[in-house]
Design a protein around this nucleic acid. Structure first.
Lengths: 160, 160
DNA sequence: TACGATATACGAACCGTTCCTATTTACGCG
DNA sequence: CGCGTAAATAGGAACGGTTCGTATATCGTA
């Protein structure tokens, strides 16, 4: 859940500052998109944000919404629910297990964990509904991508 | 990691049985698709499976691969990596938190868990690479979908 | 206020996935 | 072992979410 009520009004006043701090231009469209997202309680889709923002900026384009959401994500101002990979990946193993995923190359590794399999459902979640599965992703960089990055970076680090 | 080596050869012989047990026809295409998936070590995409199976069945269509993978998933014979939702969802909250997601309507709820945030990286994962994030989804049915399902089912249960 | 860099709107393009439909195939039955 | 029928496939067209290309408009600064 995001913030709400009076808090929103206070925060909205400083949303422009968030953009400025990142060296981004403060445009009408960006302000409304971020405002709408902060106000939203339910993790909206790009389309949903688009529809809502259009109430105030009827001429806004869906493309601007997509570009802005992507930008905000890159700057760490917002986040994205779930693992939006480009394509589906399949697994012949249907046993209870979890994944390590390289955020650079997409490599997937399996692992097992009793702690995760037995993770007790927190009371706050129990109120939301019934849980019948735990899906966990550990995200990081695989060996190969790590060493590749090191090789590429060393010259830069050595530079003034 | 799936099974491998001698195990594969044994299992392949009984793959047909897996289909029959589910009341599905045993076709050349299905056999090769499942065989390829069982053999694969790296959670391949539909496209990858397609390319590989085409080495043995040059005329197979990509559509058949997609239909078969979907079918296998529905029957619980294979699984899918990650949360392939239809569209991206965004969140103005960038604090460390996790999600409850209703598998029926897609509703998303946030929750916090120190246990998950502090989850120690298992040694087997440490060997794969460096971990810098834990993403957890508790999957289930939200209150609304639960009660809707109950209402819809009762008449059926009452029927002969 | 004018200028240069950056953003926007719009429509076209993209890409993974699914749908449509004619043809082929698996397999229970004689 | 050949038939008949329901089920599966190939091929291509369609689809939906997302991104790109480009001319125009806007922000922030000098």
């Amino acid at each position: 859940m995001a913030i709400s009520g009076d808090e929103v009004r206070q925060q909205v006043a400083s949303l422009a500052e968030i953009f400025r701090r990142q060296g981004l231009k403060v445009t009408h469209q960006r302000m409304e998109i971020l405002k709408e997202l902060v106000r939203a309680q339910e993790h909206p889709s790009a389309e949903t944000v688009y529809v809502r923002v259009r109430r105030r900026i009827p001429a806004i384009s869906l493309d601007t919404v997509y570009r802005t959401l992507k930008l905000l994500e890159e700057k760490g101002i917002i986040s994205r629910v779930g693992s939006m990979r480009d394509r589906a990946r399949f697994d012949a193993n249907t046993d209870q297990h979890h994944h390590f995923i390289c955020i650079e190359c997409g490599r997937v590794g399996d692992f097992h964990s009793d702690v995760l399999d037995r993770f007790p459902v927190p009371p706050e979640v129990a109120e939301m509904g019934s849980v019948d599965g735990v899906y966990v992703e550990l995200r990081g960089r695989c060996r190969k991508c790590q060493s590749r990055a090191t090789k590429a970076k060393r010259p830069q680090e050595a530079a003034p």
